[in-house]
Amino acid sequence: MSQLLQQLVNGLVLGATYGLIALGYTMVYGIIQLINFAHGEIYMLGAFGGLTMWKALPTGLQTKNYIALPLVLLAGIVTSTVVAVLMERWAYRPLRGAPRLAPLITAIGVSVFLQEAVRVFYPGAKGPLAFPALFTGKSITIGGVEVKYLSIFVVALAVALMIALQAFVRTSSTGRAMRATAQDPDTAALMGIDINRIIVITFALGGVLAGVAGVLTGMQYGAIDVHIGYIAGLKAFTAAVLGGIGNITGAMLGGFLIGIIEALGTQYLPQGSAYKDAYAFVVLILVLVFRPTGLLGESVAARA
Protein backbone atom coordinates (compact mmCIF):
# COMPACT_ATOMS: atom_id res chain seq x y z
CA MET A 1 0.00 0.00 0.00
CA SER A 2 2.69 2.43 0.96
CA GLN A 3 4.54 1.40 -2.19
CA LEU A 4 1.51 2.39 -4.25
CA LEU A 5 1.28 5.72 -2.43
CA GLN A 6 4.99 6.25 -2.93
CA GLN A 7 4.62 5.72 -6.68
CA LEU A 8 1.59 8.02 -6.82
CA VAL A 9 3.69 10.72 -5.18
CA ASN A 10 6.53 10.08 -7.64
CA GLY A 11 4.03 10.26 -10.47
CA LEU A 12 2.68 13.60 -9.29
CA VAL A 13 6.17 15.04 -9.16
CA LEU A 14 6.98 13.77 -12.66
CA GLY A 15 3.61 14.91 -13.91
CA ALA A 16 4.09 18.44 -12.57
CA THR A 17 6.94 18.93 -15.03
CA TYR A 18 5.09 17.27 -17.91
CA GLY A 19 2.06 19.43 -17.18
CA LEU A 20 4.07 22.67 -17.23
CA ILE A 21 5.57 21.74 -20.60
CA ALA A 22 2.26 20.46 -21.97
CA LEU A 23 0.64 23.85 -21.30
CA GLY A 24 3.00 25.43 -23.83
CA TYR A 25 2.09 22.88 -26.49
CA THR A 26 -1.59 23.23 -25.90
CA MET A 27 -1.72 27.04 -25.75
CA VAL A 28 0.26 27.48 -28.96
CA TYR A 29 -1.88 24.85 -30.67
CA GLY A 30 -5.02 26.58 -29.42
CA ILE A 31 -4.00 29.90 -30.95
CA ILE A 32 -2.31 28.96 -34.24
CA GLN A 33 -2.97 25.21 -34.63
CA LEU A 34 0.75 24.48 -34.65
CA ILE A 35 2.32 21.56 -32.82
CA ASN A 36 5.52 23.31 -31.79
CA PHE A 37 7.87 20.35 -31.74
CA ALA A 38 10.69 22.67 -30.69
CA HIS A 39 8.89 23.37 -27.40
CA GLY A 40 10.95 20.66 -25.67
CA GLU A 41 14.06 22.65 -26.56
CA ILE A 42 12.58 25.76 -24.96
CA TYR A 43 12.36 23.69 -21.78
CA MET A 44 15.91 22.35 -22.22
CA LEU A 45 17.26 25.88 -22.73
CA GLY A 46 15.49 26.98 -19.55
CA ALA A 47 17.55 24.42 -17.64
CA PHE A 48 20.74 25.64 -19.32
CA GLY A 49 19.85 29.26 -18.64
CA GLY A 50 19.35 28.44 -14.98
CA LEU A 51 22.64 26.55 -14.80
CA THR A 52 24.48 29.44 -16.46
CA MET A 53 23.15 31.82 -13.86
CA TRP A 54 24.23 29.52 -11.04
CA LYS A 55 27.73 29.23 -12.46
CA ALA A 56 27.92 33.01 -12.76
CA LEU A 57 27.09 33.51 -9.09
CA PRO A 58 29.93 34.24 -6.66
CA THR A 59 30.86 31.06 -4.74
CA GLY A 60 29.51 32.51 -1.54
CA LEU A 61 26.03 32.86 -3.02
CA GLN A 62 25.93 29.50 -4.81
CA THR A 63 25.25 27.70 -1.56
CA LYS A 64 22.76 30.25 -0.26
CA ASN A 65 19.67 28.58 -1.64
CA TYR A 66 17.30 31.38 -0.72
CA ILE A 67 19.26 33.66 -3.04
CA ALA A 68 20.44 31.19 -5.66
CA LEU A 69 17.11 29.42 -6.23
CA PRO A 70 15.08 32.52 -7.18
CA LEU A 71 17.89 33.79 -9.40
CA VAL A 72 18.32 30.45 -11.16
CA LEU A 73 14.56 30.14 -11.67
CA LEU A 74 14.41 33.67 -13.01
CA ALA A 75 17.28 33.00 -15.43
CA GLY A 76 15.56 29.83 -16.64
CA ILE A 77 12.31 31.71 -17.19
CA VAL A 78 13.99 34.58 -19.03
CA THR A 79 16.02 32.26 -21.27
CA SER A 80 13.03 30.12 -22.23
CA THR A 81 10.78 33.11 -22.80
CA VAL A 82 13.28 34.90 -25.02
CA VAL A 83 13.90 31.72 -27.04
CA ALA A 84 10.16 31.11 -27.42
CA VAL A 85 9.47 34.66 -28.59
CA LEU A 86 12.37 34.70 -31.05
CA MET A 87 11.32 31.31 -32.36
CA GLU A 88 7.88 32.66 -33.13
CA ARG A 89 9.26 35.78 -34.76
CA TRP A 90 11.93 34.19 -36.91
CA ALA A 91 10.71 30.67 -37.61
CA TYR A 92 6.91 30.66 -37.50
CA ARG A 93 5.68 34.15 -38.27
CA PRO A 94 7.13 34.15 -41.82
CA LEU A 95 5.14 30.97 -42.42
CA ARG A 96 1.79 32.33 -41.23
CA GLY A 97 -0.76 31.36 -43.83
CA ALA A 98 1.47 28.67 -45.33
CA PRO A 99 0.17 25.09 -45.53
CA ARG A 100 0.29 23.49 -42.08
CA LEU A 101 3.02 21.05 -43.00
CA ALA A 102 5.56 23.86 -43.52
CA PRO A 103 5.61 25.19 -39.94
CA LEU A 104 5.49 21.63 -38.60
CA ILE A 105 8.62 20.64 -40.47
CA THR A 106 10.17 23.96 -39.48
CA ALA A 107 9.47 23.11 -35.83
CA ILE A 108 11.39 19.87 -36.17
CA GLY A 109 14.23 21.77 -37.82
CA VAL A 110 14.29 24.37 -35.05
CA SER A 111 14.36 21.55 -32.50
CA VAL A 112 17.41 19.90 -34.10
CA PHE A 113 19.09 23.26 -34.57
CA LEU A 114 18.73 24.27 -30.93
CA GLN A 115 19.89 20.91 -29.58
CA GLU A 116 22.96 20.96 -31.78
CA ALA A 117 23.70 24.62 -31.13
CA VAL A 118 23.77 24.02 -27.37
CA ARG A 119 25.75 20.79 -27.76
CA VAL A 120 28.41 22.47 -29.87
CA PHE A 121 28.65 25.88 -28.25
CA TYR A 122 27.80 25.42 -24.57
CA PRO A 123 30.97 24.50 -22.65
CA GLY A 124 30.87 20.86 -21.61
CA ALA A 125 27.44 20.23 -23.11
CA LYS A 126 28.66 17.27 -25.19
CA GLY A 127 27.94 15.22 -22.07
CA PRO A 128 25.74 15.62 -19.02
CA LEU A 129 26.31 18.67 -16.80
CA ALA A 130 25.89 18.66 -13.04
CA PHE A 131 23.01 20.80 -11.82
CA PRO A 132 22.81 22.12 -8.25
CA ALA A 133 19.98 20.84 -6.02
CA LEU A 134 19.35 24.35 -4.64
CA PHE A 135 17.25 22.75 -1.94
CA THR A 136 18.29 21.10 1.30
CA GLY A 137 17.82 17.38 1.08
CA LYS A 138 15.49 16.71 4.00
CA SER A 139 12.28 14.79 3.67
CA ILE A 140 9.21 14.05 5.70
CA THR A 141 7.33 10.81 6.04
CA ILE A 142 3.58 10.96 5.55
CA GLY A 143 1.62 7.73 6.01
CA GLY A 144 4.68 5.59 5.41
CA VAL A 145 5.61 7.52 2.29
CA GLU A 146 8.83 9.43 2.17
CA VAL A 147 8.35 12.78 0.47
CA LYS A 148 11.26 15.09 -0.21
CA TYR A 149 10.77 18.74 0.52
CA LEU A 150 11.98 19.36 -3.01
CA SER A 151 9.14 17.19 -4.35
CA ILE A 152 6.62 19.22 -2.39
CA PHE A 153 8.18 22.41 -3.71
CA VAL A 154 8.05 21.14 -7.31
CA VAL A 155 4.40 20.16 -7.17
CA ALA A 156 3.36 23.25 -5.21
CA LEU A 157 5.12 25.62 -7.62
CA ALA A 158 3.70 23.84 -10.66
CA VAL A 159 0.16 23.86 -9.30
CA ALA A 160 0.46 27.52 -8.28
CA LEU A 161 1.59 28.45 -11.79
CA MET A 162 -1.21 26.43 -13.35
CA ILE A 163 -3.80 28.15 -11.17
CA ALA A 164 -2.30 31.56 -11.98
CA LEU A 165 -2.42 30.77 -15.70
CA GLN A 166 -6.04 29.69 -15.48
CA ALA A 167 -6.95 32.87 -13.61
CA PHE A 168 -5.11 34.96 -16.20
CA VAL A 169 -6.78 33.30 -19.17
CA ARG A 170 -10.25 33.32 -17.61
CA THR A 171 -10.44 36.77 -16.10
CA SER A 172 -7.94 39.20 -17.59
CA SER A 173 -8.65 41.24 -20.68
CA THR A 174 -5.62 39.75 -22.44
CA GLY A 175 -6.75 36.26 -21.45
CA ARG A 176 -10.15 36.95 -22.94
CA ALA A 177 -8.44 38.14 -26.11
CA MET A 178 -6.43 34.90 -26.19
CA ARG A 179 -9.58 32.82 -25.98
CA ALA A 180 -11.26 34.94 -28.65
CA THR A 181 -8.26 34.54 -30.95
CA ALA A 182 -8.28 30.78 -30.40
CA GLN A 183 -11.94 30.59 -31.35
CA ASP A 184 -11.94 32.93 -34.35
CA PRO A 185 -8.88 35.03 -35.21
CA ASP A 186 -10.58 37.11 -37.93
CA THR A 187 -13.41 38.16 -35.67
CA ALA A 188 -10.95 38.77 -32.84
CA ALA A 189 -9.17 41.23 -35.15
CA LEU A 190 -12.52 42.95 -35.76
CA MET A 191 -12.68 43.50 -31.98
CA GLY A 192 -9.44 45.49 -32.20
CA ILE A 193 -7.32 42.62 -30.91
CA ASP A 194 -3.77 42.61 -32.29
CA ILE A 195 -3.44 38.95 -33.25
CA ASN A 196 0.34 39.08 -33.55
CA ARG A 197 0.61 40.43 -30.03
CA ILE A 198 -1.61 37.65 -28.70
CA ILE A 199 0.51 35.03 -30.47
CA VAL A 200 3.70 36.50 -28.95
CA ILE A 201 2.12 36.52 -25.49
CA THR A 202 1.07 32.90 -25.95
CA PHE A 203 4.58 31.80 -26.88
CA ALA A 204 5.98 33.84 -23.98
CA LEU A 205 3.62 32.25 -21.45
CA GLY A 206 4.57 28.80 -22.73
CA GLY A 207 8.22 29.85 -22.37
CA VAL A 208 7.77 30.96 -18.75
CA LEU A 209 6.25 27.63 -17.77
CA ALA A 210 8.82 25.60 -19.73
CA GLY A 211 11.66 27.57 -18.13
CA VAL A 212 10.39 26.75 -14.66
CA ALA A 213 10.02 23.10 -15.67
CA GLY A 214 13.60 23.02 -16.99
CA VAL A 215 15.09 24.35 -13.77
CA LEU A 216 12.93 22.04 -11.64
CA THR A 217 14.11 19.06 -13.69
CA GLY A 218 17.74 19.97 -13.19
CA MET A 219 17.21 20.34 -9.45
CA GLN A 220 15.54 16.94 -9.15
CA TYR A 221 17.94 14.89 -11.25
CA GLY A 222 21.14 16.76 -10.44
CA ALA A 223 22.18 16.77 -14.07
CA ILE A 224 21.00 18.07 -17.44
CA ASP A 225 22.00 17.46 -21.03
CA VAL A 226 20.95 18.77 -24.43
CA HIS A 227 18.59 15.86 -25.03
CA ILE A 228 16.30 16.30 -22.02
CA GLY A 229 13.90 18.33 -24.14
CA TYR A 230 13.41 15.59 -26.66
CA ILE A 231 11.86 12.88 -24.51
CA ALA A 232 10.20 15.26 -22.05
CA GLY A 233 8.80 17.24 -24.97
CA LEU A 234 7.28 14.15 -26.55
CA LYS A 235 5.77 13.03 -23.27
CA ALA A 236 4.37 16.49 -22.60
CA PHE A 237 2.94 16.56 -26.12
CA THR A 238 1.28 13.25 -25.30
CA ALA A 239 -0.06 14.78 -22.10
CA ALA A 240 -1.53 17.68 -24.10
CA VAL A 241 -3.19 15.27 -26.54
CA LEU A 242 -4.47 13.10 -23.69
CA GLY A 243 -6.06 16.12 -22.03
CA GLY A 244 -7.44 17.44 -25.32
CA ILE A 245 -5.08 19.60 -27.36
CA GLY A 246 -5.97 23.27 -27.05
CA ASN A 247 -7.50 22.76 -23.61
CA ILE A 248 -5.54 24.27 -20.70
CA THR A 249 -7.13 22.25 -17.90
CA GLY A 250 -6.68 19.17 -20.06
CA ALA A 251 -2.94 19.75 -20.41
CA MET A 252 -2.47 19.87 -16.63
CA LEU A 253 -4.64 16.81 -16.11
CA GLY A 254 -2.84 14.99 -18.91
CA GLY A 255 0.54 15.90 -17.44
CA PHE A 256 -0.29 14.47 -14.04
CA LEU A 257 -1.88 11.36 -15.56
CA ILE A 258 1.13 10.64 -17.76
CA GLY A 259 3.43 11.11 -14.76
CA ILE A 260 1.38 8.72 -12.63
CA ILE A 261 1.07 6.13 -15.41
CA GLU A 262 4.83 6.24 -15.89
CA ALA A 263 5.53 5.85 -12.15
CA LEU A 264 3.07 3.00 -11.74
CA GLY A 265 4.22 1.23 -14.88
CA THR A 266 7.82 1.41 -13.74
CA GLN A 267 6.91 -0.15 -10.39
CA TYR A 268 4.37 -2.77 -11.27
CA LEU A 269 5.01 -4.02 -14.80
CA PRO A 270 7.61 -6.73 -15.38
CA GLN A 271 10.89 -5.04 -16.26
CA GLY A 272 8.88 -1.87 -15.87
CA SER A 273 11.74 0.55 -15.51
CA ALA A 274 13.25 -0.54 -18.82
CA TYR A 275 10.12 0.70 -20.56
CA LYS A 276 9.58 3.87 -18.54
CA ASP A 277 9.78 6.05 -21.64
CA ALA A 278 7.32 3.87 -23.54
CA TYR A 279 4.18 4.18 -21.39
CA ALA A 280 3.38 7.69 -22.51
CA PHE A 281 3.35 6.57 -26.12
CA VAL A 282 1.14 3.57 -25.42
CA VAL A 283 -1.24 6.12 -23.94
CA LEU A 284 -0.84 8.33 -27.02
CA ILE A 285 -1.78 5.45 -29.32
CA LEU A 286 -4.77 4.50 -27.19
CA VAL A 287 -5.99 8.10 -27.08
CA LEU A 288 -5.61 8.54 -30.83
CA VAL A 289 -7.54 5.32 -31.47
CA PHE A 290 -10.31 5.61 -28.90
CA ARG A 291 -10.70 9.28 -28.05
CA PRO A 292 -8.78 11.46 -30.49
CA THR A 293 -10.25 14.65 -29.03
CA GLY A 294 -8.69 13.82 -25.65
CA LEU A 295 -10.33 13.72 -22.25
CA LEU A 296 -11.53 17.32 -22.17
CA GLY A 297 -11.26 18.29 -25.85
CA GLU A 298 -14.14 19.18 -28.10
CA SER A 299 -14.46 17.80 -31.54
CA VAL A 300 -12.65 19.74 -34.21
CA ALA A 301 -15.99 20.45 -35.88
CA ALA A 302 -17.20 22.31 -32.79
CA ARG A 303 -14.21 24.63 -32.96
CA ALA A 304 -14.69 25.59 -36.58
Binding site: R176, Q183, M191
Partner: peptide
Amino acid sequence: FAQMTIRENLELG
Protein backbone atom coordinates in the same frame (compact mmCIF):
# COMPACT_ATOMS: atom_id res chain seq x y z
CA PHE B 1 -17.71 33.79 -29.69
CA ALA B 2 -19.94 30.79 -29.03
CA GLN B 3 -17.99 29.36 -26.12
CA MET B 4 -17.95 32.63 -24.19
CA THR B 5 -20.75 34.22 -22.27
CA ILE B 6 -22.89 36.98 -23.72
CA ARG B 7 -21.26 39.43 -21.34
CA GLU B 8 -17.77 38.35 -22.39
CA ASN B 9 -18.72 38.86 -26.04
CA LEU B 10 -19.77 42.42 -25.25
CA GLU B 11 -16.61 43.03 -23.23
CA LEU B 12 -14.57 41.87 -26.22
CA GLY B 13 -16.40 44.41 -28.34
